[in-house]
Simulated assay, not measured.
Amino acid sequence: MKAWQLTSFGRENLKLNDISQPTPGPGEALVRIASVSLNYRDKLLSDGTYNPHLQFPITQVADAVGEVVALGPNTTRFQVGDRVVTSYCTRWIDGAPTSKESLYTLGNVIPGALAEYLVLTENALALAPSYLTNDEAAALPCAGLTAWYALVEKGGLTAGQTVLIQGTGGVSLFGLQIASALGANVIVTSSSDDKLARAKALGAHHTINYKTHPEWEDEALALTNKEGVDHILEVVGGPNLARSIKAIKPEGQISIIGIIEGFDATIPLFSVIKQQALIRGISVGPLRALERMLKKFDELELRPVIDSVYSFADAPKAYERLEQGAFGKIVIRVHE
Rank of each mutant, 00 (worst) to 15 (best):
L6D: 00
E12Q: 14
K15F: 02
S20Q: 15
G25Q: 13
P26M: 03
V31K: 03
V36S: 07
G48E: 00
F56A: 03
P57A: 08
I58F: 08
A64D: 00
A64S: 03
E67H: 15
A70M: 05
N74I: 00
F78K: 04
T90I: 11
K100M: 05
S102I: 03
Y104I: 07
T105Q: 10
A113T: 10
A115W: 05
L120E: 03
L125H: 08
A128F: 03
L132N: 06
D135Y: 13
L140N: 10
P141C: 02
L157Y: 06
A159K: 12
A184P: 04
D193W: 13
A197G: 12
A204L: 02
I208D: 00
N209C: 07
E215Q: 14
N225V: 06
G228N: 04
D230K: 06
G237P: 12
L241S: 05
A242V: 14
R243G: 02
I248Q: 10
P250E: 06
I260Y: 12
T266A: 13
V272L: 11
R280H: 14
R292W: 01
F297T: 14
E301W: 09
V305E: 09
D314E: 06
P316Y: 07
K317Y: 09
G325K: 08
A326T: 13
A326V: 09
K329Q: 14
